[in-house]
Amino acid sequence: MTLSYIIESIISGILLGGIYAILSVGFGLTWGTMKVLNISHSVFAVLGAFVSYWLFVKLKVDPILSLPLIVIILFSSGAIIYKLVIRPVQRAKDVIMASMVATFGVAIVVENVMSYFWRPDPRILKPAYASSSIFLGEISISQGPLIGFIMAICAISLLYWFLNHTYIGKGVQATWQNPIGAALVGINQERVSLITFGLSIASAGAAGVAMALIYAFYPSVQSIWTLFVFLVTIVGGVGSVIGTGLAGLLIGSIIGICAAFLPFVWVNVLLFALLLVILLFKPEGLFGN
C-alpha cells in the first residue's frame, strides 16, 4: 500500500462526495423548505441516469450534451409529481410524515415501471473519455468521476446562485423562513413550491447522470442511493446547501479513506452505522445551525 494509492483513494472519495452532495442537495431543500420528505428523490436520479443512458446508446448523444435536456425532462416530472402527490399531501396535519409515506409509494411505482420496461439489469454509462485517466506524477485520476464531480459542482453552484440571487429563489427562502410574511409580500406559495420541487428533482436527475458515470445503476439501486442521500443530508443539516456540499465532501473522503483499507460492503455498514449514531446524538446535523 503506497502513499500514492492512499492519495488516489482520497481523491476519488472527494470526487464521489461532490456527486453525493448534488444527489442530496435537492432532497434537503424540499425537506427544509417545504417540509416534504421526498423518499422518491433518488428514484428520479436513476431515471435521469436511464434517460441519459438511452440517449447515449440509441442516439449517440454524449451525456454531457444531453444534460440540459435531462434537467428539463426531470423538472417536468417533478412538476407533475408535485401536482399529483405533493400538493394534496401538503394539506395533511403532519406534512413530513404524510409526504414520506406517499413518496415511498411514488418511489416504488417509478422503480418498478423502469424495471418493467428496461429490465432490472445493471448498466453503466461509458462514453470513451470516462474510462481514461489523468496522471499527476504517480497519481492517476479517472476521468469518469472527475467529469461527474465537475457536473456536480456546476449544478450546486447554479442552485446556490438561484436561491440567493434571483427573486424566485429568494422567494423560496422567504417562504421557508416565514410563510405568512411571504404570503403577505405577494409570493405565490404554490408556484414557489412547484419550482422548488421541480428543481430538486432536476438536480437529482443531473446527479443520476454523474453517478452513472461511476457506478453501475439499476432500478432498485435507488434505495441504496436514498440511504446515501439521508446520510449526507442529515450530516450536513437539513435545508442547508453549503452544509450539504461540505457533508458530501466529508463523507466522500471518509469513503475514500476507508475503501483503501476495508472491503466496500463494510464501508457501507460503517457509514450507515455512523448515520444511526448521528441521528441519535446530533439529529440537527454536523453543519446545521
Binding site: 427573486y167 429568494k170 422567494g171 427562502q173 423562513q177 416565514n178 411571504a182 409570493i187
Partner: peptide, 16 residues
C-alpha cells in the same frame, strides 16, 4: 419578517 435575511433583502422582498 424574514429573520435570516439582510435588511436590504427584506426590503427587496417587499418589492417581489
Amino acid at each position: 419578517l424574514f429573520p435570516k435575511m439582510k435588511v436590504i433583502d427584506n426590503l427587496k422582498m417587499g418589492a417581489y
